[in-house]
Design a protein around this nucleic acid. Structure first.
Length: 433
DNA sequence: TAATGGTGGAAATCCAGTCC
DNA sequence: GGACTGGATTTCCACCATTA
């Protein structure tokens, strides 16, 4: 069979058509399986700008081309008229011709025209094509590796876009929460946040970076403000309150901003101790609660016992021994929250590991530092961190399902306070979906 | 509301095969 | 040999749905 490639004189050739014709005219065509070609072409189509009717036409051609024709010494040519393709796709022949041209210029097909333009295949006794004129898949055989890389790059790009989209939402929410917590003097951050979100001509990925930088700047501003406040307190109220840096946040004394908070869940704790020491020791509170936390500071940090103490201390209505962490094991958390572990690059191998990841999880769901600290005070840092992980996992799996992850988290803490939180059921649900 | 992209119809061209 | 046929293409123009 001749390897020369023919283009009818009536056809107006473009660079893409010539390139495909050149590939189709080469003798050393790589031998590939039709199945591989189908898979790669379907993956790379969006990256090549092939969709709708063109994809439909390609699908029909892939169905018609014979697997054996991809063997060495043969030519994978499909002979089908434009009219037949038009019938199959319910489009006009004019549209079909345009689609075919698109596929040729994309390097998938090559025209192999007979002198009249008619498409036909004459086969010998063994079924091998002796004369074949029509649409030739040879360019795909040459371009297969490039198509694979293109498809991978396209999918990577899509994933980056999705991650950037999530980051934009996450940082925007975090900034709004921060502004709500800190009051009108931080309103400028919300304005700048909106400006970045609506800025034209900026890639989503760059926008996510700008918002992240803005959020860090806002945190820094909070940090600076508290430094000033602390220095004032030292001169005017020295000795009244002991403030201890928080290990779970990069801006330890930010919790003094609780005075400014507007969240109802957070405000209800204003009567309680209002410093970082309480947070640090929250999971070690004794059931009686309400006392000076500093007097309870030296209990051993046994996970289950301390969490149980916290729950019963804050939930007088529930049975002794029943806790919101019943049935919740590290293994269960690890299995249920696979997406979020991958997202933040952490492993929930132990309770301290989950607590260490709390700051990332908090930022991920856009929860304010004060909101998290309040939850820790009320339910202990293990339960708070576990809830954070669950909310983040749910938000990552289906962003549409949870419109306000921060609110969802607060609701979970409220339910825990009422003894109605069944975290193990939620986790089992996540494992099984 | 204007811009854009996809689509279809009409008329014309090309060329080998077929018919009278 | 000339007219006709058939299949594929082109350009031009208009319509329609979607999008910014």
């Amino acid at each position: 069979m001749s390897s020369s490639q023919q283009i009818a004189s009536f056809r107006k050739v473009s660079a893409g058509i010539l390139a495909s014709a050149h590939l189709a005219g080469l003798d050393d065509r790589p031998v590939v399986a039709k199945r591989d070609i189908s898979l790669v072409l379907k993956r790379v189509s969006p990256a090549l700008g092939i969709d709708g009717t063109t994809y439909h036409v390609l699908d029909i051609l892939l169905g018609l081309v014979q697997s054996d024709d991809f063997q060495a010494g043969r030519r994978p040519v499909v002979a089908i008229s434009n009219q037949r393709l038009a019938d199959y796709t319910q489009r006009s022949t004019r549209t079909v011709a345009r689609c075919l041209k698109k596929l040729v210029e994309a390097g998938i097909l090559a025209y192999r025209d007979s002198s009249t333009g008619r498409r036909f295949v004459y086969r010998g006794h063994a079924g091998e094509p002796e004369q074949a004129f029509g649409l030739d898949f040879t360019p795909t055989c040459f371009n297969l590796e490039a198509f694979k890389e293109q498809a991978d790059a396209f999918q990577r790009r899509l994933r980056q876009q999705q991650a950037a989209k999530r980051a934009v939402i996450r940082h925007s929410r975090a900034i709004v929460d921060l502004v709500n917590a800190m009051g009108p003097e931080f309103a400028d951050f919300e304005t700048r946040c909106e400006e970045i979100r609506l800025r034209e001509g900026v890639e989503l990925i760059d926008r996510a970076e700008l918002l992240k930088a803005l959020y860090l700047e806002a945190l820094e501003a909070v940090h600076e403000m508290h430094k000033d406040q602390n220095s004032n307190e030292k001169t005017t109220c020295e000795g009244d309150i002991s403030v201890i840096p928080l290990p779970i946040t990069s801006h330890p004394d930010s919790l003094t901003c609780k005075k400014e908070r507007t969240c109802s869940n957070e405000q209800e704790n204003k009567s309680k101790s209002d410093n970082g020491y309480a947070v640090e020791m929250a999971f070690e509170k004794k059931p009686s609660g309400g006392g000076n936390p500093s007097q309870q500071a030296n209990k051993p940090a046994d996970t289950s016992r301390s969490e149980k103490s916290t729950v019963s201390a804050t939930t007088p209505g529930i049975n002794a021994g029943k806790t919101n962490l019943d049935g919740v094991s590290i293994g269960l958390l690890q299995s249920a929250c696979s997406t979020v572990q991958a997202e933040i690059g952490a492993s929930f191998s132990s309770w301290p590991a989950i607590c260490d990841a709390a700051e990332d999880l908090r930022v991920l769901i856009g929860l304010s530092p004060a909101g998290y600290l309040s939850a820790v005070e009320r339910q202990g840092r293990y339960l708070a961190a576990a809830c954070l992980a669950v909310v983040a996992e749910k938000a990552l799996r289906d962003p549409e399902q949870i419109s306000s992850p921060g609110g969802y988290f607060r609701a979970m803490i409220d339910r825990a306070g009422e003894g109605k939180l069944h975290l193990y059921k939620t986790l089992h649900g996540l494992v099984n979906t």
